[in-house]
Design a protein around this nucleic acid. Sequence first.
DNA 1: CTGAAAGCGCTTACAG
DNA 2: CTGAAAGCGCTTACAG
Lengths: 370, 370
Amino acid sequence: MREAAQNSSRDTARTPTGKIPRGAGLRQVAERAGTSVATASAILSPTRSSTRFSAATRDRVLQIARELGYRPNAHARALTGHPTRTLGVLFGLERASVAVANPFVFALLQGIVAVAAEARQNVTLFTEPWHDATTSAGLLHDRRTDGLVIVAPSIRSDLIRSLVASDLPAVCVSRPAEEGLVPSVDVDNAAGARLATEHLIRLGHTRIAHLCGDAVLRSATERRLVFEAVMAEAGLPVRPEYVVPGEYTVESGHKRARALLALPEPPTAIFAASDGIATGVLLAAVECGVPVPERLSVVGFDNLHQGPAVGPPLTTVDQPVARIGEEAARLLLRRIAGEPVPTEPLLFAPTLIVRSTTAAPPSSPTSSTL
Amino acid sequence: MREAAQNSSRDTARTPTGKIPRGAGLRQVAERAGTSVATASAILSPTRSSTRFSAATRDRVLQIARELGYRPNAHARALTGHPTRTLGVLFGLERASVAVANPFVFALLQGIVAVAAEARQNVTLFTEPWHDATTSAGLLHDRRTDGLVIVAPSIRSDLIRSLVASDLPAVCVSRPAEEGLVPSVDVDNAAGARLATEHLIRLGHTRIAHLCGDAVLRSATERRLVFEAVMAEAGLPVRPEYVVPGEYTVESGHKRARALLALPEPPTAIFAASDGIATGVLLAAVECGVPVPERLSVVGFDNLHQGPAVGPPLTTVDQPVARIGEEAARLLLRRIAGEPVPTEPLLFAPTLIVRSTTAAPPSSPTSSTL
DNA sequence: CTGAAAGCGCTTACAG
DNA sequence: CTGAAAGCGCTTACAG
């Protein structure tokens, strides 16, 4: 790096300690090219047509800029009111470091980045977790990004409200607690939960348990509510101990499944609110010596690989996570462009993927037919 | 959003079309608080101690700022020489949209984001692919981020050179073609290739093939070179048709393995330069009716899930990808802080994970013993 | 076709 | 303890 000092034509000879070093600016270019800063700016700006200048002037400016290694400063541009061409992603529930390890987030990011790239936008991942409007405000609303995709905000958070109040375009992945504030994209949780529950009921199960996701996430409540509703429709009682609160994680699924399997009358089927939870269930089944699907049926939700595979391939509810990410990014782009975007949730239809973890219950006559 | 206009105390009544709306600035706060902008700035700045002001002034400014929903503008701050507290990630080889779908990148990002979050830095993913120094310059060197993690740059690219010339702190994941320019972090490819090759030789294989990764990535050459060297050490000839160029993808592995298996004298073992390639090999083996490991041994590289599992669990060389990401971020942070950072590559030791795709060759006497 | 001036929102010496 | 002024690097009307 030291050797780079040979080209000493800069006038910022020494950089103040701790400060960011600066390269050649528009002024340096203009000076050398013998034009005004305004002219150099217009010629070098990607947005303005540089045809209004004489070819000679233009070529000279372009040439000098190249020689000097001129890079327009993004902050200076942004300060004059230009968009930053950057989309922000904020993880509503967890810290970014743990969110990024989540396969759901991975798939989502693929969709977001794909659309962003197409629109020539960069993507910044905010790592600071959201606390509340007053303490977290500066972190997001500082015009660093043109808008924000909010991933799975807690229903108890003031995040959305605060964002709306600050005029920062935002789109929510997963339906926010309060609707009508911000556009949102999600899987149709009700339809998915119905698919899973009806599948188990049709198989002949009556003792069906549900392992819920994080209570602060709206999807968890939606899935549970529909599970209970479908059971009721079928005339099947739901015992309170069969609806178990917890989190969308392997560990939480594992712990709860063990408890469930230790019950005097354990369920013959479990609808896990996520594949992570289902993986935990499969783990517990192996440990407790309960064969799947012979003595226990398991259906998950997400259709995402979650950790190392245990037991047979998982029957699950597929949701198009990458597409949800794409659509969220697309809506955000439209919001940023100033187009009107409906705030009714945009819901994607889930599909049931029947694999090998579900079958008729043990004592059922249809047991061998599946 | 319309309703938000009720609070009309702003003096920027109407926003020019296409421009970004602005909230209350320091001046508004200062005016209402009856102080100068400098005072308000000092009080509201996170970096300066606000103790030098009277409690009354301080409280008033803080209070007004809250009322007005004041958010410091990140660009204005950055323009005065402050770091942006953002780390950039640039994908050297592929477009970001495809890179983000890569499990290697996923694991890497986990490490980078974890360290960034700890250091309270955000992470921006650059989506614009690198072309060459002159056309891509503005995209990266505009001071938008304090530094850059470059993931797997092509050995033919002028990226690194250009970055070094522009003073932007950068760290490379994977050894760059030209060493000494920039700190880099990577797995010890030579050690990994040796592990894989020796494992196959010890099992008794003599007809061993190698499916290479992208030739523009340095890891591909390193792995191939060591494969050839270890074979030579063992006195085993390497037929030219057994060393097959290609890419680090499932498809490329699949195609090449099919060709290999169709050879008059096919190899009894394949060292695939990545798990993706190995997955393709496994796929081809199933299609060609070649049982693994009975008639074909396969060893991969990476120890990452790549697509749906085919055949038995893969024997592979593990590399600590997330840790590599962490270390890259850490080095970058130190570079940004102005600390001296060695440019010798920081290499992580790989380990061989023996699972079920490798065994002694068919005709070997040790065949049943593994 | 080109330039001088003001301004974006903040920070930083430097005075008082 | 507080403020007036200059400046960061660009863009944008507005003149000529």
